[in-house]
């Protein structure tokens, strides 16, 4: 039960996008469609789970003075691995997400969880925390992407269900800010009871 709670808290109570307000750049920059959002979320989740596991394993070996640089090196190594894998197997997605893949390294969610959770907990719990926060991030990105895709081009996951043009502004830059802002309002409203 406790294990399940770790995962669930990452999705709702500690939702990285709507509650912790971390990782705003990829949230705004990559959510032009539901699929792009989901892809970015999955890539971040992979790095998050792997780095959480490794950091919780080596946490007692690292002197606390140099822990932040050490964490950054571990995270950067996994980002490079994910980047190379995506370039090889998902070249189209890699091209769309562009500079945001190497920038996973400075996504505050990952260092935040490394410092705030993995450095204090065991391997299994850290992996679960990575999965929970990762899922929360992926879900939020997919939702933002889906809303922008539906309003902007009348499609969802690439399937067009409204004929004619959508409101292009939602696919362009301003739409990212507006959709995220109003989704946050909705999230606050729903969770404030």
């Amino acid at each position: 039960m406790k294990k399940l709670n770790i995962i669930l808290s990452g999705i709702v109570k500690n939702n990285p996008t709507f509650v912790l307000l971390l990782g705003m750049c990829p949230t705004l920059g990559t959510t032009t469609s539901a699929l792009n959002g989901a892809g970015m979320g999955a890539a971040t989740m992979a790095v998050l789970v792997l780095s959480n596991v490794v950091i919780s394993m080596v946490k007692n070996l690292i002197p606390s003075k140099v822990r932040i640089p050490a964490y950054i090196v571990i995270i950067a190594a996994f980002v490079t691995i994910v980047e190379l894998c995506m370039r090889a197997y998902l070249p189209d997605l890699y091209k769309t997400l562009g500079v945001f893949i190497p920038l996973i390294v400075v996504n505050c969610i990952i260092l935040g969880r490394a410092e705030g959770f993995a450095a204090k907990n065991g391997v299994v719990d850290s992996a679960l925390d990575g999965v929970g926060i990762g899922l929360g991030f992926t879900l939020s990105l997919t939702v933002v992407g889906a809303v922008r895709e539906i309003l902007g081009s009348g499609a969802i996951f690439g399937h067009k269900f409204i004929t004619g043009d959508g409101m292009l502004i939602f696919v362009l830059a301003p739409g990212a800010f507006l959709v995220l802002g109003y989704l946050m309002v909705l999230f606050n409203k729903l969770t404030s009871k």
């Binding site: 307000l21 301003p174 739409g175 990212a176 800010f177 507006l178 995220l180 802002g181 109003y182 946050m184 309002v185 606050n188 409203k189 404030s192």
Partner: peptide
């Protein structure tokens, strides 16, 4: 419900 970050994001959008 708009206080804080949400209103900031809407302003940024405009």
């Amino acid at each position: 419900a708009l206080k804080g970050t949400p209103i900031a994001l809407v302003v940024a959008g405009i």
